[in-house]
Simulated scan of single mutants.
Amino acid sequence: MTLLGGDDPVFSWPDGIRAAASFTFDVDAESCVLAHDPGAAKRMSLMSHQSYGPLVAVPKILSILARQDIRATFFVPGFTAECHPDVVQAIVDGGHEIGHHGYLHEQMQGIDRETEARYLDRGLEALHRVAGVVPVGYRAPWWEMNYQTPGLLVERGFRYDSSLLDGDAPYRFAVEPGSAESLIEIPVDWALDDWEQYAFYPGWTGSGVIESPSKAREMWQLEADAQHAQGGCWVLTNHPFISGRPSRAHALEQLIEGVKALDGMWVTTLEEIAEHAANVTKVVRTHTRYEVPTFPDAPILQDGTPVGGASRARETATLG
């Protein structure tokens, strides 16, 4: 089926497929807390909150996926793999995809190229050492891509990313303006992330409002229905320490059943979706990079940031 209203007018799904869906899990465990605040290592209760993911939730989720006979994509920080090697091996043994998710779920915003390369390489080494995995997919910690990230990924053999939020279906994009090298992007959406529905721990994260699993399931099913209707790609992001709690895990299995029931919905890993997209995408997008404009007499802040304006400098999209 040809995608309705997509960026690429010739993008199509395999014969008999109307749309695609993927259940993805970011196995952050203790890593995201420690990256945010290393002092949290002394907070026994907080660390136990995170450990629930690999110790209890991942086995539960693997059982659900086995019952439902679907394969999923698990994005695993290198530190998580080192701390919980048996859990990572169980994911691999279950036939699921392992993707790269940083080493310590590092803060990515504004880091330099050399630092980011070190994070990538350390995570790659850990996944390979622990489980023999060489991932082809990447999801940036906090979904925070830098403009240098795509080039670093291509240099290391990655074939797709799932961190950006600017599409309803997979697309191909140039790693740099004018570059012949490209990646497949499988977009995500904050509305399809369990963190926004359930995440809470005093003094660390969340608003204190923990939503009902039935509300989250209804919202996610509506998104799946809409993507199915337009021939798009629905990607759900879950964190085991959040969505593996009993009532949420039950709602997740109900959601899987609902998404599977959609006629012609291809439920699979991001790797398989990316492989298909790589074979059919013709348009290569170049992302706009914005410059902050100034008036001639505008003051400059101490960090070098200019003040004022709201225009942009657009780079021309290239067609492949």
Results as ranks from 00 to 15, higher is better:
G208Y: 10
V235Q: 08
G208F: 10
D189N: 12
T237P: 01
W220N: 04
M219R: 13
I210M: 09
L183Y: 05
L252Y: 09
G231C: 07
P213C: 04
L222A: 15
D189Q: 11
Q230G: 08
L236C: 13
A249G: 10
A229W: 04
H250D: 15
T237G: 08
Q197G: 02
S214M: 07
Y201I: 01
E218V: 09
L236P: 05
V209N: 09
Q227V: 12
I184R: 02
G208K: 09
G203I: 06
Y198R: 06
I186M: 08
E218D: 15
A216T: 11
A191C: 07
E181A: 12
P240Q: 07
Q227A: 13
Q197H: 12
R245T: 14
P187N: 09
R245F: 11
F241T: 08
L222E: 15
I210Y: 00
V235N: 06
P187A: 07
P240Y: 02
D225Q: 15
P187W: 03
W204C: 05
W195Q: 06
E185L: 03
D225V: 11
Q221T: 15
A251P: 01
G203D: 01
A180T: 10
S207N: 06
S243Y: 05
V188W: 02
Q227H: 14
W234T: 09
H250Q: 15
Y201N: 01
I210S: 01
Y198M: 04
Q230K: 15
G244R: 05
I186W: 02
G232S: 05
S247R: 14
D193S: 07
Q227S: 14
W195P: 02
A226M: 13
W220M: 03
R217D: 02
T237D: 04
A226D: 13
Y201T: 01
V188N: 03
Q230L: 12
A249V: 08
P246M: 12
S182D: 04
A191K: 06
N238S: 14
S214Y: 06
A226I: 08
I210E: 08
V235I: 15
A191Y: 12
L236Q: 12
W204R: 05
L183R: 04
W190V: 08
P240R: 04
C233Y: 01
G244N: 06
A180C: 04
I210F: 00
G203L: 05
T205D: 10
H228T: 08
G206Y: 03
A216K: 02
H250P: 08
E181H: 11
S182H: 09
I210T: 09
G231R: 04
S212V: 07
A216F: 04
V188G: 01
D225N: 14
I210A: 04
Q221E: 13
L222P: 07
W190I: 07
V235H: 06
L222N: 15
G244D: 04
Q221I: 13
S182N: 03
L236S: 14
G232W: 00
S207I: 08
